[in-house]
């Protein structure tokens, strides 16, 4: 589904100094995979995520999504593509304040030209176990519940790919495990997921591990036991 070929990303700072955030990254991700991207801080995880999510353009290389070359789409075309095919979950949940969970979840539908949108918001909320919290505002929800609303928002338009950048970074371990098990069950139901984390315990929820260092892929393979240590809470949640 996803085919990155020799992707490079160079940031040029205002001082003129340039930062090589991604360097010759080639990566293929098939439909139904659950990939964790790990690496030290500053290794380029978020940059890779932004490129995958068409939020940012690579400076070199080619990006094909379902055989379509999406490296050079216009801003508006990328927005349309994101809306229809990609769901995002962020570390800080980015929910609109004083707005009900349901309205937050339905936000992507505003920018969609789909006609059959009735009931999608309710369905997505039910899928993350918040059917009874539709009219609650973010202030009335716990952190874990807020992130579940954000996941529902990412799912509402039934995207091909779900991207999550440190989705549990703001949550304590027990709640984080809950979020991870939601992602796992989504993956079991067929959803393709790419998860960025620097927490090995969280990465262990995935089935494939991509390790970045200095903007390069240094290892890539299925998760085998011993690769990462699992936190007891995660084990319990599983």
């Amino acid at each position: 589904m996803i085919d990155l070929e020799s992707i490079g990303k160079t940031y040029t700072r205002q001082t003129g100094e340039s930062v090589r955030a991604l360097d010759d990254v080639s990566l293929r991700i098939e439909r139904g995979e659950f990939v964790a991207i790990v690496g030290a801080s500053g290794s380029g995880k978020s940059t890779l995520m932004n490129v995958l999510g068409l939020l940012d353009e690579p400076t070199e290389g080619r990006y094909r999504f379902d055989a379509e070359d999406v490296s050079n789409l216009s801003l508006a075309a990328r927005a349309g593509f994101r809306n229809a095919r990609i769901g995002f979950v962020f570390q800080s949940f980015h929910l609109l304040a004083r707005t009900s969970a349901l309205e937050n979840v339905e936000l992507p539908l505003l920018y969609s030209d789909r006609a059959d949108i009735a009931g999608l918001g309710e369905r997505a909320l039910a899928a993350v176990g918040l059917a009874d919290r539709m009219q609650h505002t973010p202030a009335e929800l716990s952190g874990g519940q807020q992130q579940r609303v954000a996941i529902a928002r990412a799912l509402v338009n039934e995207p091909d790919l779900l991207l999550a950048d440190e989705p549990t970074g703001n949550l304590d371990a027990a709640v984080a495990a809950e979020i991870m098990s939601i992602l796992q069950s989504l993956n079991r139901a067929g959803r393709t997921i790419v998860l960025v984390t620097h927490d090995p315990a969280m990465a262990s929820a995935a089935r494939r591990l991509v390790r970045l260092a200095h903007g390069r892929v240094v290892s890539d393979g299925p998760i085998a036991s011993g690769d990462i240590t699992l936190a007891p809470t995660v084990l319990e949640a599983r």
């Binding site: 999510g53 939020l55 801003l75 508006a76 927005a79 349309g80 994101r82 809306n83 229809a84 995002f88 962020f90 800080s92 980015h94 609109l96 936000l107 992507p108 505003l110 920018y111 969609s112 928002r153 990412a154 338009n157």
Partner: peptide
């Protein structure tokens, strides 16, 4: 800015 970034991420075009 966060709201605008979020809206952009979930598919708002610059015109939107």
């Amino acid at each position: 800015t966060a709201e605008i970034g979020l809206r952009t991420a979930i598919g708002a075009r610059p015109a939107d």
